[in-house]
Design a protein around this nucleic acid. Structure first.
Length: 170
DNA sequence: CGGTTGATTATCT
DNA sequence: GATAATCAACCGT
């Protein structure tokens, strides 16, 4: 299946309190410190995987979280992984997108620039500057005012903005 | 429609 | 032991 990415968020390393790499390299975020053009997949909230694309050179943690996309081919496969979802909701949100693409920790660190693995990123049509919107990142506990989320205007597949919701034990 | 809450566990402190 | 870059279900209006 193919997905057209409509929404992303940038995460830096040592300079970004919201980044998993803020406190240095760990077993989980090792892929962020690896070569660019590779995937960084993390598991959170006890049930969700999310897909990032590593952008910085080796040793510099920089990555982009793929937050949402439009399924443009293979809708049947995607829907089989997300029963009950409308076409619009198949990849509307980072965990949903990962689920639709069957991305999990087993794809952490794989090359997405053209190798055999089951995940590849390609360049698409350019997007007009005035169609690119910017805003604060969704759901992050720290650096909530940092403008690092980019999305395509008028795209129904872009996820709605939600501020971080503090939660505590029951 | 908008706000709240339960689910569920790897990871870090 | 607390937290989390989330989602879906459920509530009251």
């Amino acid at each position: 299946m193919r997905v057209r990415v409509t929404e992303v968020e940038a995460y830096e390393g040592a300079d970004d309190p919201a980044s998993h790499a803020y406190r240095g390299r760990t077993a989980r975020n090792a892929a962020m410190f690896g070569p660019p053009g590779h995937a960084y997949v993390y598991f959170t909230y006890g049930m969700h995987s999310c897909l990032n694309l590593v952008c910085g050179p080796v040793g510099i943690a920089e990555a982009v979280l793929v937050r949402a996309g439009e399924v443009i081919a293979g809708t049947t496969i995607a829907r089989s992984r997300r029963p009950g979802s409308s076409a619009r909701d198949l990849a509307r949100g980072p965990a949903r997108l990962a689920q639709a693409l069957a991305v999990d920790r087993s794809l952490d660190g794989v090359d997405v620039t053209g190798g055999p693995p089951g995940l590849r990123v390609e360049c698409g049509d350019p997007i007009a500057d005035d169609a690119v919107c910017r805003g604060p990142r969704v759901g992050v506990a720290r650096a909530a005012d940092r403008i690092a989320r980019l999305w395509i205007a008028a795209e129904p597949t872009v996820s709605p903005y939600r501020a971080h919701a503090p939660r505590h034990r029951r």
